[in-house]
Design a protein around this nucleic acid. Structure first.
Lengths: 254, 254
DNA sequence: TAATATGTTCTTTATTATGGAACATCATTC
DNA sequence: GAATGATGTTCCATAATAAAGAACATATTA
């Protein structure tokens, strides 16, 4: 029933290394992970031998190896949600000329599994694989609006409400109310609740059973994505795309 | 000096799981990896607890978890090669209306670190993170053309020359000759050597020291990417882009 | 040159992982 | 519907293994 210690430690090191794209020395790692030099050294040696970690011989810094990329190569390819939703999301992004995200829930957090940039000059992979909290994102609210009350409770109980902006929802009660609102509306807003200058609108994607399995959003600077634009155009558009994508996944509701 | 057994085993399992996007049962894994049921079960339990692996409770199948995606989120983002090359590669892809790949070498293999599809209907991530041998790809030949003779020897000694098509180079001598040719030409062809219907042209990317650190290619069906097109247009174009991207990385040669 | 900070290797010890066996669960077949 | 087989899970004694301190090596700085 208990875990394998060395594996737990090795994975913890991998997690930590992902925070340092330019690498980190063993001495720094000992501070981050509380393990002795020699232990970390041995764990890293194993990770290096499997190409999960690369050692920069010049600087003695360790960073993630390309085997990690190799691992994830099939993770999203074969995900029907990404494949099916992509053409819709690309079209949506073009129509509104803003960034579109596709997200699912993973262990009580939002995880970005696809992103379409309106502006081609911005790099591509920036957010795929990243995580975000549920309480301050439109996509998170949508995902919770489709969850059971028990699950919502469980997620909220683990949530630390940090006021990222003056508009962030910071109480359990307010958040529950918001989720209820989202459920009724069929869409969610992030009204500068995560980043001061950003406004998003998110909508659900349903599977064949009518369960919310993903959500997608339009994000943009508040001055472009105005409340007026949302009310006059985006809400309607999001609902259309929500239905179209869901239908393609076998959803039969409305 | 020796590796941590349990970690080696856990990573071997992760590697194996990446071959099964839809998951695999413990019983199947015992055949693939030669370990006992109970050991695999315990290793998997640890991987699951760290979200590196997810268990499908319905089917008892295990597959990679999204933590793997999270790990790789910064792997290519912060890679200057990808970021700097991308706009050029996108322009190139548009100009010739064919797929463009960006590759580096990793442990004697080609690894695809970026891909631009000409045809937007084809899914996006299909090849990023994948590996390919050096001897039957244009990008591989280019990468080896910039390596030291010792490194080339080392790679070749580990290479098994499999005739993927009638045109595949299958001898060490012929391959060495080909690399020499590529070095002189400044570009490489894959003339249906990997897949019968495919033809590619690849060129190097140099860093500020004049070292070849990556290569990029145009790939397309042989009937579109004809030898005539290559000779009259693509060679010149590839050389231009090669220089432009390299210059942007600090290359001062010509 | 000494001192400091770091990476690497070694060795002893006790912790820890291991795998067989027992048990549980499920599906299939007769 | 009982019996068989295939699988996942848990337990436990044992031996193998990982851990960490110390010694050593190397590089950097004062």
């Amino acid at each position: 029933m208990s875990n394998v210690q060395s594996i737990e430690r090795a994975l913890t090191i991998l997690n930590k290394l992902s925070e340092y794209p330019d690498g980190i020395q063993i001495a720094r790692l000992t501070e981050q992970v509380s393990l002795t030099k020699s232990t970390i050294h041995r764990l890293l040696a194993t990770l290096v031998s499997m190409n999960y970690v690369v050692k920069d011989e010049e600087t003695d810094k360790y960073k993630l190896g390309l085997q990690v990329l190799f691992l994830s190569r099939n993770l999203l390819n074969n995900s029907s949600i990404v494949t099916i939703a992509k053409p819709y999301l690309e079209k949506l992004s073009q129509e509104v000329n803003e960034t579109v995200h596709l997200c699912i829930e993973d262990h009580g957090e939002v995880i970005y599994i696809d992103k379409i940039e309106s502006n081609q000059t911005i790099r591509m992979y920036s957010r795929i694989g990243s995580r975000a909290p549920m309480y301050c994102t439109g996509v998170g609210k949508v995902l919770l609006s489709g969850a059971t009350p028990e699950h919502v409770d469980q997620v909220i109980s683990k949530t630390e409400f940090i006021p990222k902006t003056p508009y962030t929802i910071t109480s359990k009660e307010a958040f529950l109310k918001e989720i209820e609102l989202v459920k009724q509306q069929g869409y969610a807003l992030d009204n500068s609740e995560n980043e001061e200058v950003l406004r998003c609108i998110a909508a659900p994607i349903y599977d064949h059973k009518g369960k919310i399995i993903a959500s997608f959003s339009i994000s943009g600077p508040s001055n472009r994505v105005t409340m007026e634009l949302i009310n006059t155009s985006l809400i309607e558009k999001m609902k259309q795309y929500s239905l179209a994508i869901s239908r393609n996944l076998g959803y039969s509701g409305s």
